[in-house]
Design a protein around this nucleic acid. Structure first.
Lengths: 333, 333
DNA sequence: GTACATTTGAAAAAATATTTTCATAAACAC
DNA sequence: GTGTTTATGAAAATATTTTTTCAAATGTAC
């Protein structure tokens, strides 16, 4: 399996599949998110300034505006106040601080900026290539990005919520949950373990940083009522396969996240989740795998309303270490 | 900033706005001019009706709105009155005729339609397996997958190869390269470090599994000729910000991978790479971040033909531990 | 610690925007 | 033509939004 082989199935991007007429037309919408484009506009820059220089609430306001530029024209000062958690009075003053005559003018300026963002914009391929014309390497880079987008989309589209539900109830009922991955996959396994922690009384991430030999020991006592979630991608680490085989012989339920039905894990698993890992340069692009991991965690969280609370509780305990300690989520990153 | 806030910009999908034929396609939402897209929206349809059925002024109003949809959210009834040449009273009645509670609601509806148009949102919803129908949770799940796909695409589209090239040469010339991330981002930092290893003589992953206190020590001697690559996403870990500030004071070059220009890292970094992290359930979806990391590594690899060889050499040394020891890539997963 | 400056929210005041009223004008039926 | 219906704008009435005021809280300098 070489690079060109891996890329080829995805070579034809949705982009190039677009009807011809669309190609030169005034297709809408910017490169990147509206948020990123907005930040580049003059108004965005002013807001960024205020985000640095201003007072606590001014920073909060600037941040909200930068993150939700599309809403600005549509909402009034009161609603914005409640969304940003400051008073309308402060917002009124903020508008002046930003150099406007009042909130109305700020809002008008925002609307203008957004208008400007609606310039006809080329799509991924052309926009990237244009600035990278000379070096042949740029094409590879674009291919890599394209491949990543496709991997993620394929994974998302082929993910079966039913299977996810089954796996979630499996995890919920398990005596102990094990996560396993080697090499790069070990980090995905760790992320999975970290996210799973609030919901699993007993949870073991088999490979804690490099300790390949110790890993087997951690898995030694896996049994019938346990679940092993294993991740492996090309080039598949033999240890992952071997340990999974072992867990299988011990009667554990196996959930595998891997790239293809042709993966050596496919035969060993009771439940399979696929995350394509095509990449022109790297042996595996793991972004889709991360999407699948996050989907699994999401499914687990929403499977039970209590879980969300539980996750929040955990968060509160570490809130002090976060820049923004005000919201109720569980993931620090 | 909470989950609903984060999700909300994407809440209203353009799905329902699209002509039937497009529903199952993978096209971007907004193709054509904003005006045309707006005309296809439910609100646009209503206006078209009124344009045919209504009285003289109603036709004039409907036409103006259809031709200038982008202005609607920004202007009040009086200004619209003067632009369309009718009185405010007529506009007020027009809004009712269109089925709204009043002008305010009409304007809000217009803002919503436009918001939907500005989201280059792809419609996975229909393409994701239909079994999702029953449970309410499935929608959240689908939203999560949609968000991930959009994050990844946004990241890909807004990634500037030039910036990447600059960063690559920075890394190549650096005396020592540091990678830094806390919480979930620590795993991304580890992946980055693992991938960078073959190309960096001196490389330090500051946070090796949880050791928060030791981390500062590892960064202590960072200096002018060094590069710090830091990753942080909501909810931003204060430690990441603090250590980055420290590195900055020591004169190190800072490369930040974060979610938004409003991120606290944005002000500290010399070079910024954006990876949107929107997610309806999790506080951050990190798949796009992984795409950016992989793009950076790819760029580094292809920047110099020798690098590929170098990566291969390393691989050969560990080939014995891989299921398929025949190819020439560097990543075991 | 105290004094001073800054920031903030609640509520009053002002400004603005929207709706309703009402008189008139236009359109239509006959 | 007249009577009737419908549509309209001006202005009053109402509702909403925005700004200002002011007292309290917070932060800062000494």
């Amino acid at each position: 399996m070489n690079a060109s082989n891996r890329l080829s199935p995805n070579k034809r991007l949705a982009l190039t599949d677009m009807p011809e007429k669309a190609k030169n037309s005034t297709d809408l919408v910017a490169v990147g998110t509206p948020e990123l484009t907005f930040a580049r506009s003059p108004l965005g820059q002013r807001l960024l300034d205020l985000q640095n220089s201003g007072s606590r609430s001014n920073r909060a306001i600037a941040e909200y505006l930068l993150r939700n530029p599309l809403r600005i024209p549509a909402i009034g000062i009161e609603e914005l106040a409640s969304r940003t958690g400051v008073s309308a009075a402060t917002l009124s003053r903020f508008a002046r601080a930003a150099g406007f005559d009042g909130y109305a003018e700020l809002r008008a300026a925002a609307a203008d900026s957004l208008l400007g963002m609606l310039q006809p914009v080329e799509k991924l391929r052309s926009s990237i290539q244009s600035s990278a014309g000379k070096s042949g390497g740029a094409n590879v880079l674009v291919s890599g990005l394209e491949a990543s987008v496709n991997n993620v989309r394929s994974a998302a589209e082929s993910l079966d919520p039913k299977a996810l539900t089954t796996i979630v109830s499996l995890i919920s009922r398990a005596n102990e949950v094990y996560t396993l991955g080697f090499g790069l996959s070990s980090h995905l396994a760790s992320i999975l373990a970290l996210d799973l922690q609030p919901f699993c009384a007993r949870l073991t991430n088999v490979v804690e940083f490099g300790g390949t030999e110790v890993a087997a020991g951690r898995l030694l006592n896996i049994g019938k009522r346990d679940v092993l979630i294993v991740l492996s991608f090309p080039r598949y680490a033999t240890d992952a396969i071997r340990l999974t085989s072992y867990a299988r012989t011990r009667g554990a339920k196996i959930v595998a996240i891997t790239d293809s039905p042709a993966s050596p894990l496919a035969q060993l698993a009771d439940y399979l989740l696929f995350a394509p890992a095509n990449h022109p340069v790297l042996s595996s692009g793991l972004s889709a795998a991360l999407v699948v991991v996050e989907a699994l965690v999401s499914a687990l969280m929403i499977s039970n309303p209590d879980n969300v609370k539980q996750a929040s509780k955990l968060t509160d305990a570490i809130a002090a270490y976060l820049v923004d300690g005000t919201d109720t989520h569980s993931r620090k990153s």
